[in-house]
Computed example of a mutant assay.
Amino acid sequence: MVNLSQTCLRALTLSAALAAGGSAQAAMLFHHYDFSTGVIDLVGTADGTLIDNAHVAGGQLVLDGNGDYVQFANHLIPIAGSYSVALFGQRNLDQGTFTEMISQGYSGGPGHYIGTDQGGNIRAGDQWVATGVPFGPVGSLTHYALVVDASGGGSTRLFVNGLNVASLPFAIVSTPLGSDTRLGAQFAPYGEFFNGVIDDVRIYDGALTPLEVAQLATPVPEPGTWAMLSLGLALSGIVLRSRRPT
């Protein structure tokens, strides 16, 4: 559950992103999981299987870091071109080891994943193992987005809570071989199980704009937050449309 201070911060982040704008890029949502009833694909047909103690509760995927994860039957994340992966994650403790929220492929393939290293910093696949960006605080539901844009010279951007915190000057790719997509664990033969919750997993064919990422990172404001959001928007001269990118 996102607390009021987090919501206020994300509301102001959205206001700033709206003011900054961004170039339009076509990004089509083709997998979406809100965990309201199991691991059901709300857009496509790629439902997931809960393994071991992995379960869904309160609209979130709950993982204990001890051998549980979600397994899919194919690679959900595009292996090349422009694509985006966005999700909320919250760790229950600092595990002090490698952990993964999402993965596919195999080591050196290159493999694709979004998770943490032993120091608690974010890793974004074999081609970006050291982003230098800290993972969200323990107990804090944080939004992460990896946006890969293969157009022009190419780029890969990492967003945390709607803010672009790191980037690469090329579009990362991954292998079509190895393990199919998993949530909460690394591809075989590694474990790297995640202890925490995962929510609102979205995979796009195409690169999300900074504005679209900010919208995904900003939950529906709680009572009392609208005033702050409205003030930020008013200062930017912008009227908010209450919908997220699809």
Rank of each mutant, 00 (worst) to 15 (best):
G44Y: 04
T45K: 07
A46P: 02
G48D: 07
G48Y: 10
T49H: 12
T49L: 10
T49K: 07
L50P: 12
L50V: 06
I51E: 13
I51T: 11
N53W: 10
A54W: 11
A54F: 08
H55Q: 14
H55Y: 11
H55T: 13
V56S: 03
G58D: 10
G58R: 10
G59F: 14
G59Y: 11
G59R: 13
Q60E: 12
L61W: 09
L61M: 12
L61P: 04
D64R: 08
G65R: 01
G65M: 05
N66L: 14
N66E: 14
G67T: 09
G67Y: 15
D68S: 03
D68M: 05
D68W: 05
Y69A: 03
Y69S: 04
Y69D: 00
V70N: 03
V70E: 04
V70H: 08
V70Y: 04
V70W: 06
V70M: 13
Q71C: 02
Q71N: 05
F72R: 05
F72I: 12
F72N: 03
A73P: 07
A73M: 12
A73H: 03
A73Y: 06
A73G: 12
N74Y: 06
N74H: 15
H75T: 14
H75G: 09
H75E: 08
H75A: 14
L76G: 01
L76S: 01
I77T: 10
P78H: 13
I79T: 13
I79A: 11
I79M: 11
S82I: 01
S82Q: 15
Y83A: 00
Y83L: 00
Y83T: 00
Y83E: 01
Y83D: 00
S84L: 00
